[in-house]
Amino acid sequence: MKVRLKAFARFREVMGSEQDLEVPEGTSLKGVLVLAAEGSDKAREALFSGDDLKEYVVLMRNRKRVVRADADREILSDGDEVAVFPPVAGG
C-alpha cells in the first residue's frame, strides 16, 4: 500500500518535504517512520532515540494527532497521510 509522508520545519531538512512510500499491509505509523529513516542517519537521529520515537515529535495521521504511545498500534491504510514535525516552545 501507499502512504504519503510529510515533514515540516527542521525535519524537512533531513527527510525532504514529502515522499510517497510503498509499505507492506499492516504497517504501523511508527513502522512507516522506521522505513523512512532507513539509510539516513540524520533522519533516524531526528526522529528516534534508540528504538523509540522521540517524545516531542508531533505525529499526525490524516491531520489528526497521534500520541507517541499509540504510534506502533496505529495501523495505516492505503492512501493515508502521515505528517511529522518538531514543536517549538520558546518565546
Partner: peptide, 20 residues
C-alpha cells in the same frame, strides 16, 4: 492540548529576534 498533549523538553532555546 489537542495538538500538543505533552510538553517538549525544557531547554535554553536558541533564539533570534527576527523569528520572534
Amino acid at each position: 492540548r489537542c495538538i500538543f498533549p505533552t510538553a517538549p523538553p525544557k531547554e535554553q532555546f536558541p533564539a533570534i529576534g527576527v523569528t520572534a
